[in-house]
């Protein structure tokens, strides 16, 4: 690798803790995929955007779907167009040349790109274990075969690979063996403060402080199924910030508005409402 080593140190809208920065840099230098786990809404996907932004690299996102096969992520052989062309023959494509009908999908695009890219494989746990196993070889060899044309596509520049997973359970061992791993823990209040500052540079200080305190309190309610995460807090602050009634930061002691932004399951919403009303009474 003659390219000068670039280091990642955060982006304009992403607050990076030093631990994660080190891990990202090590993974990039070792050319190993980085597997990120953590509660939904703690910025796993955002990290890839942030790296792309700060290093000025192109970001290619593969959104994994439950029915996906690995081959769908590599390339597509457009049978239907070819069938159509062979029947009607009214296109400029050469029907006898199968290559005309091979299109690169996300992983293929990342491999064939002239520049080093960032490949985000988002929510890999959605697909079944076969998908992960098939992915192994490709990540290992950095190349794949196009069966139809018997061609081998290998990566021009090894892309930086970020893989995210929401699963509580582990991915298969061989797969893990080829990745570096990090679990993004839920940020502490002080970290959260700087995240809020980055997103709302002009927000009322008191409002931010109260909102964060209330947020952590609501998060700790017993028995909540989907606890609100950073994403929810940001959205909530955005809502509060636009509402003139709360903008001044007076809130919140007795009234917690827009609970629906934080709690999206009806049971959770009820629990949170109960918690808030009870606080008002006593």
């Amino acid at each position: 690798m003659t390219e000068e080593r670039k280091n990642f140190s955060g982006a304009s809208k992403y607050v990076l803790d030093s631990e994660l920065a080190q891990i990202v840099n090590v993974s990039m230098a070792l050319e190993m995929p980085l597997l990120l786990k953590g509660e939904p809404g703690t910025g796993k996907t955002m990290l890839a955007y942030a790296i792309a932004e700060s290093l000025g690299m192109e970001l290619i996102i593969l959104n994994v779907k439950s029915s996906m096969k690995v081959i769908d992520a590599l390339y597509q052989y457009d049978t239907l167009t070819r069938l159509n062309d062979s029947r009607f023959g009214d296109s400029t494509r050469d029907v006898s040349d199968i290559k005309e009908y091979i299109k690169m999908s996300k992983i293929g695009q990342a491999f064939t790109s002239e520049k080093r890219t960032i490949l985000l494989i988002d929510e890999i746990d959605k697909a079944d274990t076969d998908f992960q196993d098939d992915m192994l070889d490709i990540l290992d060899q950095m190349q794949f075969d196009i069966i139809e044309t018997d061609e081998v596509v290998s990566a021009n520049k090894r892309p930086v690979i970020i893989i995210t997973s929401n699963a509580k359970k582990d991915l298969s061992d061989p797969f893990l063996g080829r990745c570096n791993f990090h679990h993004i823990a839920f940020p502490e209040a002080s970290m959260m403060k700087s995240i809020v500052d980055v997103h709302f540079p002009s927000i009322d200080k008191k409002l931010a402080k109260n909102a964060i305190a209330t947020f952590y309190e609501l998060r700790s309610i017993e028995g909540i199924e989907k606890r609100p995460a950073t994403r929810e807090l940001i959205n909530w602050l955005r809502a509060l910030d636009t509402d003139p009634e709360f903008k001044t930061g007076k809130l919140i002691k007795n009234k917690v508005p827009f609970l629906g932004v934080l709690f999206k399951k009806s049971q959770d919403y009820e629990r949170a409402t109960m918690h808030v009303t009870r606080r008002k009474i006593f």
């Binding site: 080190q22 891990i23 090590v26 993974s27 597997l35 786990k37 582990d170 893990l176 791993f181």
Partner: peptide, 13 residues
Amino acid sequence: YTSARSILVKSER
């Protein structure tokens, strides 16, 4: 500490 953890340990458990 961080690098060794990310390279060696593959589950937050």
